[in-house]
Structure formats: structure tokens, C-alpha cells
Design a protein around this nucleic acid. Structure first.
Length: 407
DNA sequence: TCTGGGGTCCTAGGACCC
DNA sequence: TCTGGGGTCCTAGGACCC
């Protein structure tokens, strides 16, 4: 079976904002332009790194103090996520002036189907790609990389191959030669585990991968990787998904402590905050919650976890507090040092709370209490005071009045 | 990579049923 | 009671992404 089919059965473009968060900050604040800049001050680690800062060897996840050692004059800023979202929306608006079939894959990257646009634009696909790139650069002031090929997976690899400001075109005829230069571990969808497996099979490049016959390869692979094999050979397995994301399968919240701790009250307060945050987000999207997954993470990166299932989906964690606390106490061990807690809620259902079952105590006041909480940011639950006492070392003027809740 | 946070999808295998 | 086979549903956990 030949790998190459026609050069352009369809044309898919991948648009990738280069160092997106850092580039947006540089575009929005001209005095940051062309200077080493790192976003992520609020979390203490590098989230996005401008190309000027990369030259100093700064990498993702690096701590702020390490960054200062490498580059003392580096600008460290907090992320402005509303600003990033605004730039993102404008980037996609520009893309939609070329094609209605656009997928917003994430805040800083997307796909579009540009099949058949050569005639109306009197231009090659490469020229169209460069035009989009220039439009975005001129109106938003941020650099993007472009990849154009015949499937999403190939277009993504194409845009990855040259950053920043690359425009790489891979027609069907050139798939094989292009993929020869792509190490298997760099392929979108191949992680460390699968890369190790494929290497054992003698596959080192993406070209090796697509030239291995399916009869030999597929017994080792699960569905996503079989799909990827087809995508890289030019068969569309992943259509462009134009639906805007407004639903969730799960919502999670986890926080790593500034300092690891054994303190039971502090841990419970932290876990409680994560639970509240998950439910708050769920309510914002109109969800009730049937599954709650709680975990403690030890300093050794071990997870102790428990899942709970409600027969009646819940909107307010307050009504299940006793159960959560019992669960927490069952997981907690005095002598263990913990670094984080977390909560994931799942089995989300739309709509108002249905009638409580016979054996679950209804808490009629919960909605009113939560409405108060959501309108009054200076009020918090009693347990959060433990957070205040622990954080007092670093936070000088934290004001947390207590709301005593009896249910 | 001495390891932050928020997601999705897939699969093996157990439970249960006929 | 034993033996055999097949289907569905669900869950925990793996793998991967930005």
C-alpha cells in the first residue's frame, strides 16, 4: 500500500502561537518587547518563556530563583488569563476569515480546513499560510507557526518543525521524506511509554513508524496509536471539530503546598478548599455531581485516594461534609508528610438538583449559604482559618473573617 | 525533567446475567 | 450441581495532551 496518495486530497492548516503567553505580554506591553520575559510568577514556576529568555537556557517548569540566577534582568510577570483569552479569540476570528471550519484546539493553537482556497485566493497553500501568519502578526503583534498538510497530525508536526514564525507545507507526495526528519518521540500522541516500546521495535523516526506494516505493528498498539499510524500516512482519522468547548466530563482541583506538612487540620482545610472549588466550577456550568474523587499526595509522590458515589447528584458539598471528612480521616496518617491534596468531580449532570432520596438528609439552607458565599468574597468557611494561620508567614495582610455554619 | 495544574480517551478485567 | 460460553456494564488506572 503506497503511503503517498494525491498531494492535496484536503488541506489542513495548524496554527500555533509561539511562546503564546509570553508573546501576548510583550505585544500588550510594548516596553516588554524584545526582552527576556517569563510568565508564571504567580505559581513560582515558568509557564511561558519568551524566545529572548530561552537564549539564557530557561526552560518550562523552572523555579523563579533559578531563572534569576541564569538571567538576572529577566522580566518575571504574572499571567493575565483574560488577556490571553482575548488574544486567543482574536486569533481565531482572523482564522475564520479564511475558513468557517475552525477547531479551537486550545488557547494558543487551532486547526482549519482550507481545502479549495487556492483558486479564490489566487495563491498556493503556502502563500495562504503566510498570509494568515502576517495577518495575525500585524493585527495582534504575536508570532505564530503554520503547518499545512493533509491530516491534522501531519499539519501539527509540520508547524512544530519550524518555530518561531515557520510556515511548513507537507503535501501528500512529501510525507515520507518529511517524516524521516521527525524523531518518533516528537510525534504528537507518542509519549515516553510508547516511544520506548517503538524504539524496541526498531522504530526511531516517524518514517520508520509509517513504513512498518500494520500486520507487524498493530498487535502492539491500542486504538489511538493505530489511528495515528493512519493519520501520518495521510488518511484522515480525526476530523476537525468545530464545536466550542462548553461541557466537561470531569472537573478537578489540586494544590501543592508551599511547604510539605503532616498537619491534619491544615490538610483537611486544603482538601476542603479543593472540594469547594470543584463544586463551584461545576455549579457555574450548571452541573450536579455524582462522583467525587479525593486524594492526598505524599512527599514521596504516592497517592492515597478514595472515590465516593452519590445516589443523588449534588450541587453543594456542604451537604456531604461529614462523609468527606470521614473519608479524609481514613486516608490520613499522622506520621506521613504530604505535599498536596486534590479533588476531582465526575459523573456530571445538567439541571437542577433532583429530589433527595429517602435516606439522605436534605439541607434546605445550603443554596442560600452558598449564594452568600459566592457574593461575599470576604466570607469563608471556618476550616479555612487553618489556611490563614499556616500562610501567615508569607501573607502579611490576609483578612479572613469566619462564617460559622450549622447544618 | 527531582516532578505544577487541568483535562481527555482507552482498555483490561471484574461483576453480573442468561 | 457441574461445565461451558457469551454479552453488557462499570471501574481503576494508564497514557497522553496543553
Amino acid at each position: 500500500m503506497p503511503v503517498c496518495i494525491h498531494s492535496w486530497p484536503q488541506a489542513i492548516i495548524h496554527v500555533d502561537g509561539n511562546a503564546f503567553f509570553a508573546s501576548v505580554m510583550q505585544a500588550a506591553y510594548p516596553h516588554y518587547a524584545n526582552k527576556p520575559l517569563v510568565v508564571g510568577k504567580e505559581r513560582g514556576i515558568a509557564t511561558a518563556i519568551s524566545y529572548e529568555a530561552r537564549a539564557y537556557g530557561i526552560t518550562r517548569g523552572m523555579q523563579m530563583h533559578e531563572i534569576r540566577l541564569l538571567c538576572p534582568h529577566c522580566i518575571l510577570v504574572e499571567g493575565d488569563y483574560e488577556l490571553f483569552s482575548l488574544f486567543s479569540q482574536r486569533m481565531f476570528t482572523i482564522l475564520r476569515t479564511y475558513s468557517p471550519t475552525v477547531e479551537e484546539y486550545s488557547v494558543d493553537e487551532g486547526f482549519a480546513d482550507i481545502t479549495g482556497l487556492r483558486r479564490p485566493f489566487h495563491a498556493s497553500y503556502e502563500e495562504i499560510g503566510k498570509k494568515i501568519q502576517n495577518d495575525i502578526q500585524h493585527s495582534l503583534g504575536i508570532p505564530i507557526s503554520i503547518g499545512i498538510s493533509i491530516t491534522k497530525s501531519l499539519a501539527k508536526l509540520a508547524s512544530e518543525s519550524k518555530k518561531p514564525r515557520g510556515c511548513t507545507v507537507v503535501p501528500g507526495k512529501h510525507i515520507e521524506s518529511f517524516l524521516a526528519s521527525v524523531p518518533i518521540a516528537h510525534v504528537w500522541g507518542i509519549g515516553p511509554s510508547t516511544a520506548a516500546l517503538l524504539t524496541k521495535l526498531g522504530i526511531h523516526t516517524a518514517r520508520d513508524f509509517i513504513l512498518m506494516p500494520s500486520a507487524e505493528l498493530f498487535p502492539y498498539l491500542s486504538k489511538p496509536f493505530k489511528d495515528l499510524w493512519h493519520e501520518l500516512r495521510g488518511t484522515v482519522m480525526h476530523a476537525i471539530d468545530t464545536n466550542t468547548k462548553n461541557t466537561y466530563q470531569s472537573i478537578s482541583r489540586t494544590r501543592t503546598f508551599a511547604h510539605p506538612t503532616k498537619d491534619r487540620n491544615y490538610l483537611w482545610a486544603q482538601l476542603r478548599e479543593n472540594i469547594e472549588a470543584c463544586f463551584a466550577k461545576a455549579r457555574r456550568f450548571g452541573y450536579s455531581v455524582a462522583d467525587v474523587h479525593l486524594f492526598l499526595k505524599t512527599q514521596q509522590f504516592r497517592y492515597i485516594a478514595t472515590s465516593l458515589r452519590f445516589s443523588t447528584p449534588q450541587r453543594y458539598p456542604l451537604t456531604q461534609l461529614d462523609q468527606f471528612e470521614k473519608t479524609f480521616l481514613a486516608m490520613y496518617q499522622q506520621k506521613t508528610l504530604y505535599r498536596a491534596t486534590g479533588c476531582t468531580v465526575g459523573k456530571l449532570s445538567q439541571g437542577e438538583l433532583v429530589q433527595s432520596s429517602l435516606f439522605e438528609t436534605p439541607h434546605k439552607r445550603a443554596p442560600a449559604i452558598y449564594r452568600t458565599m459566592e457574593n461575599r468574597h470576604d466570607i469563608t468557611f471556618g476550616t479555612s482559618l487553618w489556611l490563614a494561620s499556616e500562610d501567615r508567614k508569607t501573607t502579611k495582610h490576609m483578612r479572613i473573617p469566619m462564617l460559622t455554619v450549622r447544618v
